[in-house]
Design a protein around this nucleic acid. Sequence first.
RNA 1: GCAGAGGGCCGGACGGCCGCCGCGGCGGGCAACCGCCGGGGAGGAAAGUCCGGGCUCCAUGAAGCAACGGUGCCGGGUAACGCCCGGGCAGAGCGAUCUGACGGAUAGCGCCACAGAGAACAGACCGCCGGUCUUCGGGCCGGUAAGGGUGAAACGGUGGGGUAAGAGCCCACCGCGCGACUGGCAACAGGAGCGGCGCGGCAAGCCCCACCGGGAGCAAUGCCAAAUAGGGCCCCCGCGCGGGUCGGGUCCCGGAGUUUCCGGGAAACCGCCGCUAGGCUUGCUUUAGCCGAGAGGGGCCGGGUUGGCAGCUAGAGGGGAUCCGGUAACGGAUCUCCUAGAUGAAUGGUCGUCCAGGGGCUUCGGCUCUGGACAGAACCCGGCUUACAGGCUCUCUGCGCAU
Length: 151
Amino acid sequence: MTPPETPEDGLAAHGDTSPAVSVCASATKKIEVIAKRSDFLLAARARKQGVKPMMVQGRDRKDGGDLRVGFTCSKKVGNAVARNRAKRRLREAARLVLPTHGKPGWDYVLIGRAVETDRRPFDDLQQDLIYALKKIHAGGKPSGKPRPKSK
RNA sequence: GCAGAGGGCCGGACGGCCGCCGCGGCGGGCAACCGCCGGGGAGGAAAGUCCGGGCUCCAUGAAGCAACGGUGCCGGGUAACGCCCGGGCAGAGCGAUCUGACGGAUAGCGCCACAGAGAACAGACCGCCGGUCUUCGGGCCGGUAAGGGUGAAACGGUGGGGUAAGAGCCCACCGCGCGACUGGCAACAGGAGCGGCGCGGCAAGCCCCACCGGGAGCAAUGCCAAAUAGGGCCCCCGCGCGGGUCGGGUCCCGGAGUUUCCGGGAAACCGCCGCUAGGCUUGCUUUAGCCGAGAGGGGCCGGGUUGGCAGCUAGAGGGGAUCCGGUAACGGAUCUCCUAGAUGAAUGGUCGUCCAGGGGCUUCGGCUCUGGACAGAACCCGGCUUACAGGCUCUCUGCGCAU
């Protein structure tokens, strides 16, 4: 079966998106990786939006610098192989989506989930990420003290 | 052909498009860096972290002893091992084969539940036999351990002789113990002869004997940088003029893109050098000094924090082929191929075609749906253990059939 054409958003097409990317991301072309634990903790205290295959946390650092992203897959996701696979799919989705839908100066943390991060069709995974980013930029909910106990 | 035993090996394949992490080369650039090209990039268990090493740091005269821990039939292999190979012994199986904490119980201590008369210098409940008494039911004294009963285990077994009844009390055979000698490197095996038999089990209870072991680990360890509160040590000390780019800071430009780093440049803010001058407070006194203390400034050291670099991957290395030694594990020689190094942690994402495997339909040609186990390097090796869809292959055993 042929894959459905999704010309919008420039996410499904691969080869000829480089001019669009360079236009949109003139200020920040590279995505930094969050490496410090304290940055993860700050992002966790900021806005969040859950979608089926992942939880997305976002924080505006308000310094206008680079867009940064981090990934978290706890042992709840599964063994090491399952955690790696989930993290790789999230990383790939972030690579395709964030240059056009992310905002400079923000930190994003993507958190993997047990089965859905692996099973979700990749196009849907990208749409979910775009939806979550929109909600977060629009205001989101502050992920305060009451941690979500449901899955 | 059926049933079974023991090994060895593989553990999806190919191709688009888009990425990630090292390495090498070329080009641009003073350089930082950027671009292009080439090549490499998870496993048989990478896992558990259970043994044995290498390596690093710490401790330590050599060594011995004690304590603690480990190993435990014998011989060999190995860098070493608790691993591997061969052999012995015991047990299981018709067999191929499999299983085994397999040193010592006359070094000592301890334990052996329940049942049973009795459980470790044996003992006598029912019996059996003799004596004696008798109300004829049996009682009492003595002998005995063959028979019964209990138990995981009861102090040899069977038969004969013998006796009041019995008993290795005596004899034959079997068993047991000691054992000259023989074979073997040894574990061990065979065994002339001797002994009437006295000597139960547990060491996965303490223990004894022999051998081995100093401790901690790559978050080891070494180096560099930044910023901060406080500590220790050392130096300078005011003013003015000039010099210079060696160190720090400031500013500008470029690169990488952020509390920063690298390269180039500018100016004289501080240190510095030359001249000049003779001290901010205070103490001492020879009223002057290379004097002391303090404030201020600078540098160094040590400690914690964060980041970077090294350690970091080619090593007792693995695979293949041939030859030699060895029953084998393994060793030697020659040729050849392979050999990842991340650090919020790369080795992928996605799509297509095919191949095993499974289900359904079938006109036996196929069609269609489904679908790939266990699992991810983190300093490196040698083992062990555990997990694992499915498949390939070799050798051997038993039974059946055919010749």
